[in-house]
């Protein structure tokens, strides 16, 4: 994140030296977009904080079951409706792995977590419109299933 501030600062300096007026216009435009979308982002944070209450125990319980098919399907669904930062998701995946959960299930969970954003819908639809947002997430779901199956095949967990 520090890196982003440095990049932004350097870009601002270069831009300012080249053209003062244009730079101010750019800043103004950026901030206008920011303040317009900010309430949506805050709303998203509120939703995520509530969803995260779905505790790790719940996820471990649901993903740590014998059946590969049910496990994979629920991993992709749970991953789609939840949202958590990597520094929580990966240690959690490590715990799952230790408990003997299959890679295909972990793969489904991790990919859909990143790829399908049911909770990010309010923000995404502002930029992509409803239709594209819904279809894009649907395809994301399919991609997550595809990646999970590929991982499962590779680790010899299916077939």
């Amino acid at each position: 994140m520090k890196y982003l501030y440095i990049v932004a600062a350097i870009a601002l300096i270069i831009s300012f030296v080249k053209d003062k007026k244009k730079t101010l216009k750019g800043i103004k435009r950026g901030l206008k977009k920011f303040q317009k979308i900010l309430p949506k982002y805050l709303m998203l944070l509120v939703i995520i904080s509530i969803v995260l209450l779905l505790s790790e125990d719940f996820i471990i319980k649901y993903l740590n079951q014998g059946n590969i098919l049910i496990g994979t399907l629920s991993s992709v669904i749970i991953g789609s409706v939840t949202m958590m930062p990597g520094f929580i998701a990966y240690p959690l995946s490590g715990v799952l792995l230790e408990k003997g959960v299959a890679y295909i299930i972990i793969g489904g969970f991790v990919t859909s977590l990143m790829l399908v954003g049911v909770v990010t819908y309010p923000v995404e639809k502002e930029y992509f419109g409803k239709k594209l947002t819904i279809l894009r997430n649907l395809f994301g779901f399919l991609i997550a299933v595809g990646i999970a199956i590929g991982i499962g095949l590779f680790y010899g967990e299916v077939l």
């Binding site: 932004a8 750019g26 944070l45 509120v46 930062p85």
Partner: peptide, 29 residues
């Protein structure tokens, strides 16, 4: 809930201002 909020907010909200500044600069340049 408050703790969860803090985890995300401190990462996300701080990242947005420089990101939007860059988007604004991208727009004009």
């Amino acid at each position: 809930m408050g703790r969860n909020f803090y985890i995300f907010a401190k990462d996300m909200v701080l990242i947005l201002p420089p990101a939007f500044i860059l988007i604004g600069l991208f727009d004009v340049w």
